[in-house]
């Protein structure tokens, strides 16, 4: 049986197909190459983007649409996925997908483009406690992206630059808009780019840590979402949380879509 999870994020759509295989008579779940995501083009509706991403993923993985028994949507735009059988919150999907990939994880930190959240989960991937920030993007990827643009660095360079700094510059602004003006002030005062990059990523990490502390940090901590690709952020978050090791799953931006596909296999959402 093949199920699909589709994560309609703020910036990208992620699709994962999950196939249940019988290996030596025992059911096993396999997933892997079958995800595909596209950036939201400016002129495309969310429901069209979902359809497009799903079709591209089907094509890329050689699966016929009829073979997909159940589709579960998640993410900020989950209600826009008209062809989904059910939808679940990104909190439940994130926890489910993380525990599948990192079975020892009990605290999940999910930092996407527009929102970060802290989730406490049990061994089955069921949410025990969660907190997000409903108000502001300052603890999320879009903020880091906007700041990297202000510094005229690519996102990759931005993360790597922050690792070269050992300075701690507190950013007082709590809002993306004001933080950008603070970054501009730092640029004008000839502060090195790497120090500014570290200040920005420390500020994001500090906000995310506050959410994680609200739910309580227990067991091993896993980080999912697109910000895992930012090496500077991962380091800032480790420092802010006071942990040496953090579980970083492969293809971290697909974990919530995987969680949705797993929930689809359970037949309820």
């Amino acid at each position: 049986m093949i199920t699909a999870g589709i994560d309609m994020g703020s910036r990208t759509v992620k699709v994962v197909f999950l196939e249940e295989l019988k290996v030596d008579g025992a059911p096993q779940l396999k997933w892997g190459v079958k995800g595909k995501h596209i950036m939201f083009p400016e002129d495309l509706d969310a429901d069209q983007a979902a359809e497009k991403a799903f079709n591209e993923a089907l094509q890329a993985s050689g699966i016929a649409r009829e073979q997909v028994r159940r589709v579960v949507a998640t993410g900020a735009g989950r209600k826009q996925v008209k062809f989904a059988h059910e939808d679940v919150t990104e909190v439940s999907a994130g926890a489910k997908g993380t525990v599948f990939m990192c079975p020892s994880a009990r605290t999940v930190i999910d930092v996407g483009a527009e929102e970060g959240r802290g989730i406490k989960t049990d061994a089955d991937g069921k949410v025990v406690d969660f907190a997000g920030n409903e108000k502001c993007a300052a603890g999320a990827g879009a903020f880091a992206e906007s700041m990297s643009r202000a510094l005229q660095l690519s996102l990759k360079e931005f993360g790597e630059a922050s690792l070269r700094s050992d300075k701690t510059i507190p950013m007082n602004a709590q809002c993306t808009v004001f933080a950008e003006s603070e970054v501009v002030s730092l640029i004008h005062s000839s502060t090195p780019k790497e120090d500014i990059a570290k200040a920005v990523l420390d500020a994001v990490a500090s906000r995310v840590t506050a959410m994680a502390r609200r739910v309580g940090i227990e067991g091993e901590v896993a980080l999912i979402g697109g910000m895992v690709h930012n090496v500077g952020f991962v380091q800032s978050l480790k420092t802010a949380l006071g942990v040496d090791n953090m579980l970083l799953p492969d293809m971290p931006e697909y974990v919530s879509a995987l969680g949705a596909a797993l929930i689809a296999t359970e037949g309820k959402a």
Binding site: K126, G132, K135, A210, R214
Partner: peptide, 13 residues
């Protein structure tokens, strides 16, 4: 499950 609804901003949590 404990669901926390809300936000943190410059004025508090």
């Amino acid at each position: 499950m404990i669901a926390n609804y809300g936000y943190k901003d410059g004025s508090g949590e």
